[in-house]
């Protein structure tokens, strides 16, 4: 968290620098099937974030020791491309991307019917091409669409969104400037149909009342994004039928 700054990020009428009100998310655009050689793929353009996800499999799991006798393993990688941020990122995994890969895999394992594919592996590759705050949420959302695009059986799709606090006000879906001065961050991954949570992190400082507002903002954003996901899948998989 950037801590308390003097920068005024939200005016007296509750309007944020990019014109949103506290509970608004940034514009979201989703396309499925954008990587022709993958079994399933998607791109999520969430504000200025641009995240792509590809799914390969199910396939035989190698080496054998990673196989699970009763289910498939999800091999998830989250990575930021070297040109995705203002300062270039040196290629290669770091602790942050490893942690995000791990919690993303665990979120998706909660909805994918992995028991249908014992001893196999499903590869999920998440690549951040442009990062503007909220890439882990966009990554989980993109991976959900890519899995559906690949025809992997799932009980539900996961949508992820974060709320935070700027100038002491709780707002939904912080953009980069807000995130730099943010005082809290609460990313959640929610199943579209069941409403259950499969991903949850938080850092910063929220009072019980603020926490409830952040939680409610996140929950309110799930259905609209779910609609956009469904539309994307219909477009790439042959219409409304």
């Amino acid at each position: 968290m950037g801590g308390y700054g003097d920068v005024q990020m939200i005016d007296e009428n509750g309007i944020r620098m990019d014109g949103r009100t506290a509970g608004d998310i940034r514009p979201v655009l989703i396309n499925a099937g954008i990587i022709p050689v993958a079994d399933g793929s998607a791109e999520v353009i969430w504000g200025n974030n641009h995240v792509v996800a590809a799914v390969y499999g199910p396939m035989e799991a190698h080496p054998r020791k990673i196989q699970k006798q009763d289910r498939a393993v999800l091999d998830v990688r989250y990575n930021m491309a070297p040109f995705s941020t203002t300062d270039r990122i040196r290629p290669g995994f770091n602790r942050r991307s490893r942690e995000i890969s791990k919690v993303t895999a665990e979120a998706l394992e909660s909805v994918v019917l992995t028991e249908l594919y014992p001893r196999s592996k499903i590869r999920v590759e998440i690549e951040v091409l442009t990062a503007e705050a909220g890439t882990r949420c966009a990554g989980i959302t993109a991976a959900s669409v890519a899995l559906a695009d690949a025809g992997i059986p799932m009980t539900d799709m996961v949508i992820s969104v974060a709320s935070g606090k700027i100038n002491g006000v709780v707002v939904c879906d912080l953009n980069k400037e807000e995130d730099n001065y943010g005082e809290a961050d609460l990313p959640m991954g929610v199943c579209a149909n069941s409403g259950e949570l499969v991903f949850l992190q938080m850092d910063g400082d929220l009072s019980p009342e603020e926490f409830q507002v952040a939680w409610d903002y996140n929950m309110g954003a799930i259905a609209p994004v779910h609609e956009i996901m469904i539309e994307a899948l219909k477009r790439s998989n042959g219409g409304d039928e």
Partner: peptide, 11 residues
């Protein structure tokens, strides 16, 4: 120059 051919691009 650095070439990134990550596993996203193919099996």
């Amino acid at each position: 120059t650095s070439a990134e051919v990550r596993p996203v691009s193919g099996l």
